[in-house]
Design a binder for these strands. Sequence first.
DNA 1: CTGAACTTTCAAAACTTTTTGAAAGTTTAG
DNA 2: CTAAACTTTCAAAAAGTTTTGAAAGTTCAG
Lengths: 173, 173
Amino acid sequence: MEIKTAKEKFIQSWGNFGKTWGINKTMAQLHALLLVSDEPLSTEDAMERLQISRGNANMNIRALMDWGLVSKVTKMGDRKEYFEAERDVWHIARLIVRERRKREIEPMLAVIEELKEVSLSEVNREEEQEEKERFSVLLEDIDQFATKADSILDKFQRSDENWFYRSLVKLMK
Amino acid sequence: MEIKTAKEKFIQSWGNFGKTWGINKTMAQLHALLLVSDEPLSTEDAMERLQISRGNANMNIRALMDWGLVSKVTKMGDRKEYFEAERDVWHIARLIVRERRKREIEPMLAVIEELKEVSLSEVNREEEQEEKERFSVLLEDIDQFATKADSILDKFQRSDENWFYRSLVKLMK
DNA sequence: CTGAACTTTCAAAACTTTTTGAAAGTTTAG
DNA sequence: CTAAACTTTCAAAAAGTTTTGAAAGTTCAG
């Protein structure tokens, strides 16, 4: 296999992989493209390589910058904007964890906390007692688990690579 | 807030939450509905509570059973099938991790391994040397990270609740 | 067997998300 | 300032996903 073919395959796979994780396919493909490029690329370069429209390229590159995965590079004597991807896999993972916690875990925790409060309020009718109790236990269990998972991810996100690898060794014992 | 309203809200939130994680909204809502039901429900019950069609209810209940999150219950003297959800949050988490590893992480790892092999093949032309080297390093880094993350998840999936909580304490030190 | 009770399937419709591309906006060289 | 070079926006179109519901399939009591 040619290296060009291999990179192509990498870009396609990264796109599909991203899609299952709730990330727009083009966004993931752009990320992959920038990861395998030896030079920063312009919007035009990306449009041509991925066969996508200007609007699509522009929007998704912005999104990648919002996530912190891609940064703008300027070349002297050139008005075009060029982009390059963060290549440190460890750093990439932390940025992704940060975004996903923000978007997915924290809103869910907020809802659970809210509903827990409701469940604690007085029981009005006798027959509700047991139902309410069961619901409360469920919410409490989910809350406990999610809070713990969230705090691990928080720790991960703030830690350095060594912490991760040291932790791994501990856990695998 | 009424308990009925609270459960309603739980079902809606679980649905939206699931959606961002690449799980069909109805599937997540059905799961939530069964989680908060004190009795097993029939397909008809689910159709009525969630206002969905028979086909939709049927397909997504099947999917939940494939994931192992829901099981069939039969009542004597009744030909209908009833369904109930696994309520142990820990167990639920393990089942979800198992499915997602299978569907998302493992296929990605397979692609990376395949591309790594390609990258190791002889360099044909002089100018390709550096490009190939850079690509190889990237693939190697991703592979290392993903393999480690996958093995933590594998361990998690096979472990019991106590392992998880003990590990947490260790990690948070 | 037969037919009622139930479950499954799947093509078409509804809905959601993504993409396009042209127009508007911004920046800068001259 | 002006106009060329570039970036951003967003309504409409395309693509993708989910849902519907009716027909086909299955099971089982009588």
